[in-house]
Write a protein that binds this DNA or RNA. Structure first.
Lengths: 174, 174
DNA sequence: ACCTGAACACCGTTCAAGT
DNA sequence: ACCTGAACACCGTTCAAGT
């Protein structure tokens, strides 16, 4: 006898993402997610292999949102600022993206705009190395900012703009 | 009636660190740590407030080891390579250091050598900004390397050396 | 003074039984 | 076909009782 579906994979992932941002990864329990979509925990296993797979899906959708946020900018400065803005708006999603390694295909989507900007500045031959320098700096800066690891005072906004100028100089051929 | 001590805080933190590196943070359970020091889980609460405090202690000791590894190098290139070597030797400790924010005092110890190198290259006025650019790049690069996020091919060693030259150029006044 | 067994709350996961 | 209650294993934590 058929039974109507009372939820969906999209709703489950959205619920998990909401809980992640509101309360942290530890709060993303199968029971909390289930309750939010109006179902009991065991039902989640109809759409998701286990909690780890669900968290992975959350990371993938977050990576997709980041990729979308990076599509619009055209300059290095715009891209870096958009990247930092994303991390500040969705700090826990950001940390999840760069701790759990995301799906390679989605990662490639997020990398494409950075690679294009790097190529424009550094030239074809150094494009990949330049993109990695730029990405590493941006990831590290935002990560340390979110972790509260920059504690020696000084202006973080100023440090970010200084870094931005430095990275641009680093990848621009002399 | 007095009872002899069968373990110590140091032994507990060391056991937790070993389990972390061997099997990951999820494997650092109170029971696993207790078993390794030859005691039952409830006994750990005589020396440690709770699991979170224990993990924090593990992060702090790892940060201290990192600080020690950064004391010897004198140049930017040496420091960066020592940093990367530490991360590859203790990947899970490294990730713990930069996700859970460590103790400010210990963080300051690890920052000191970086700040000195940055000052030598960038000068007094830009020392802090330069240290932050350098640190952000190194943290981000190693983090992405460990997470397997650099997937577009190319040589990672080469990307690291390219980044190193770029960062040095970025923080050296023209 | 430290250690432990027992207990409790909570979580992930499975599965037979419902509809 | 999907949903759920019941059950199991496992974990963190507390505490009275041991020595």
């Amino acid at each position: 006898m058929p039974a109507p579906e009372r939820t969906s994979l999209e709703a489950i992932v959205a619920a998990a993402s909401d809980i992640l941002e509101a309360s942290g990864l530890d709060a993303v329990t199968m029971q909390a997610v289930a309750a939010r979509v109006g179902v009991k925990a065991p039902s989640l296993y109809k759409r998701v292999a286990d909690r780890e797979a669900l968290v992975r899906l959350v990371a993938d959708t977050a990576t997709e949102r980041l990729a979308t946020a990076l599509e619009r900018p055209t300059t290095l400065a715009e891209a870096a600022r958009a990247f930092r803005a994303f991390a500040r708006e969705h700090p826990r999603s950001f940390q999840l993206i760069f701790s759990a390694s995301a799906d390679p295909e989605i990662l490639a989507r997020a990398s494409a705009p950075v690679l294009r900007i790097a190529r424009d500045l550094a030239g074809e031959g150094d494009a990949l190395n330049a993109a990695r320098l730029l990405t590493a700096w941006a990831v590290g800066f935002v990560q340390m900012e979110l972790a509260g690891a920059f504690q020696l005072g000084g202006e973080l906004d100023e440090a970010f703009e200084y870094g931005l100028r430095g990275v641009e100089r680093a990848i621009t051929p002399r």
